[in-house]
Amino acid sequence: MLKTERLRIRRFHESDLEDFELLIRDKMSSKYAPYDIPWPVDNFGDILVCLINDDAWHAVELIEKSKVIGFVVASRTEDETIRDLGFTIHSAYQNKGYAYEASCAFMDYFIKECGIKKFTSGTADCNKPSVALLNKLGFTKVQSLETSFANDSQGNPITFLASIYERMN
């Protein structure tokens, strides 16, 4: 478990199910949802069990409320010295610096304890808050591409411009 002034960054627990469901429903109702890999909005218990058993995924818990308000993930890549950073904070808790605080502590842990030399991350170019956060975290844009993760109501791919970012440690 990691602790900052306001947050605990820890492994998920089965008792997080209610907060986790609220978080994912909020994420999937965001205006940015079509620009991210879709999460199923059923079987939250099964999904949570998978996250509990994967040490790359960590809950972001607001200490003052003992409530899970987000997650950070450092997904494995083919190179064990590189991790792919992801983050989500519930919309009710955004614009308070929680994603930055959690991501800094999380990356610092992986650098010091796991020997991670580089982080990668990706986001839709139109997701200005995520782009700003990656820049603030010291990431540099290294590639632009057109991609799609979801389809519209007629079954056509929703294509968008995205960028890949890297941060060397």
Rank of each mutant, 00 (worst) to 15 (best):
S29L: 09
G70V: 06
A33K: 09
L48V: 07
R76T: 12
K27G: 03
T77P: 00
S75I: 02
T77D: 06
L51Q: 08
S66C: 07
I9M: 04
W57H: 14
E80L: 08
S30Q: 06
F20Q: 01
E14I: 04
T4L: 05
V60Q: 02
A74Y: 11
R10E: 01
A59R: 02
I37D: 03
D54Y: 01
P38T: 10
I24E: 08
K3M: 08
L62R: 05
E61I: 12
T4A: 04
I37P: 00
V41L: 15
I69V: 15
V72D: 04
D79S: 11
D84Y: 11
A59P: 00
E80K: 05
A33E: 06
D26K: 01
R11E: 11
L48R: 01
E14P: 00
V68I: 14
F20P: 00
K3L: 05
W57M: 05
I82C: 06
I9D: 02
L51Y: 15
S75W: 08
V68G: 01
P40N: 10
I24L: 14
F87A: 03
E64P: 00
V72H: 07
R83D: 09
Y35T: 10
L23D: 05
G86A: 14
E61N: 01
F12R: 00
D36E: 15
I37F: 13
I63D: 07
E61H: 01
V60R: 03
L2Y: 07
E64R: 15
V73W: 05
E5C: 03
D55P: 03
S30I: 10
H58L: 09
I69A: 10
K27E: 08
G45T: 06
H58D: 07
W39I: 02
R25S: 03
S75N: 12
R83V: 12
G70D: 05
E21L: 04
Y32G: 00
D16Y: 09
S30D: 15
E78F: 13
G70Y: 09
P38V: 10
L2F: 07
K65V: 05
C50P: 00
I24P: 02
R11Q: 12
S30N: 13
I9Y: 05
D79P: 01
A33S: 13
A74T: 04
V68L: 15
I82D: 03
D55S: 14
K27V: 04
A59W: 09
M28L: 04
D84H: 15
V60N: 01
V49P: 01
V60Y: 07
L62I: 09
D79I: 11
R83H: 11
E14A: 10
F44C: 06
T81S: 12
H13G: 00
G86Y: 02
A33F: 08
I47D: 06
V68W: 07
D16F: 08
I37H: 08
D55T: 13
S66E: 15
D42G: 00
E18A: 12
I37K: 11
G86H: 02
I37E: 13
L17I: 15
L23C: 10
V68M: 15
W57V: 00
P40D: 13
R11L: 08
L23R: 02
D42K: 13
S75F: 09
I82K: 09
I63P: 00
L2I: 13
A56S: 13
